[in-house]
Design a protein around this nucleic acid. Structure first.
Lengths: 138, 138
DNA sequence: TTAAAATGTTAGCATACTATAACATTTTAA
DNA sequence: TTAAAATGTTATAGTATGCTAACATTTTAA
């Protein structure tokens, strides 16, 4: 059985995915710097993520995501992007705050809410771009 | 200095406030039952909340909120209500899931996002109730 | 090519939260 | 009014997360 990842572990995956996109590789030091934690904390997290099949990490070597780890990272990134866009572009929340809020919410939002939000955002776009909104008749 | 409360401690305050509203009083057993934890866990949380001035709890007696505790509980409840309403009434997320999501988000949403959401919900209501929406002219 | 610097790892400790089990107090009902 | 039941508390332990300090390895630059 595979327990759900904690928020912290999800953040490690997300960070590793980001570093791989940016630098092609991810190192312990980059991860700790980006996340504001110590190398030792990164190591411990990596051990857990390795055991559970989300990352590959050879001693003193680079850190890589397994397919399973990449899938989780992509999923979270997708949530973050949508939440950030909703908060910033639709609600008008300031960039930094919108990002901070999105980074917390991405770990807790349910698939159902995510789906509804995607639909809602799409509908809003249509309204704004294509036609005036009609009052819904009861 | 007063550190921010953890999500867990905020939940204890929220539950105590709920029980006081419903039953006039809050007891350790009611709290543990509602939160799905053991009495011993409640006790430890109450000790922390007492020390930090959020609750009053005499040994073997009822649990009460200080003014400070009540203010925090009210604040969180306000956030929960707004988030639930947005998720359920506007996005159309099913009741139980909307509540579950709101109960997580209420601990992380920033004041800025909260304010923007209140404004947005108000605007939507106006649109739906008073007049068709005009496309915003650039 | 080797010593210093940079990076990575491990051991031991701290905080937050929850649980179980043993014990204490209060409430209840016979 | 007192024994049983209900409720509350404490001691001890486990999981998750982070830190510092000591140590190991790799990279670098002289």
């Amino acid at each position: 059985m595979n327990k759900k990842l904690t928020e912290s572990l999800e953040n490690y995956l997300e960070t590793i995915a980001f570093l791989k996109r940016e630098n092609k590789i991810a190192r312990v030091k980059d991860i700790s710097k980006m996340m504001g934690v110590k190398n030792s904390s990164v190591n411990i997290a990596l051990n857990v993520l390795s055991e559970r099949g989300y990352v590959i990490h050879e001693r003193y070597g680079y850190v890589d995501l397994t397919e399973r780890g990449q899938i989780v990272a992509d999923d979270i990134q997708k949530k973050e992007d949508l939440l950030f866009s909703f908060l910033h572009n639709i609600l008008g929340v300031e960039k930094e705050i919108a990002l901070k809020d999105a980074c917390k919410m991405e770990h807790t939002i349910s698939d159902e809410t995510l789906a509804k939000l995607i639909y809602f955002v799409g509908k809003l776009d249509n309204k704004n771009l294509k036609e005036p909104v009609k009052k819904k008749t009861k």
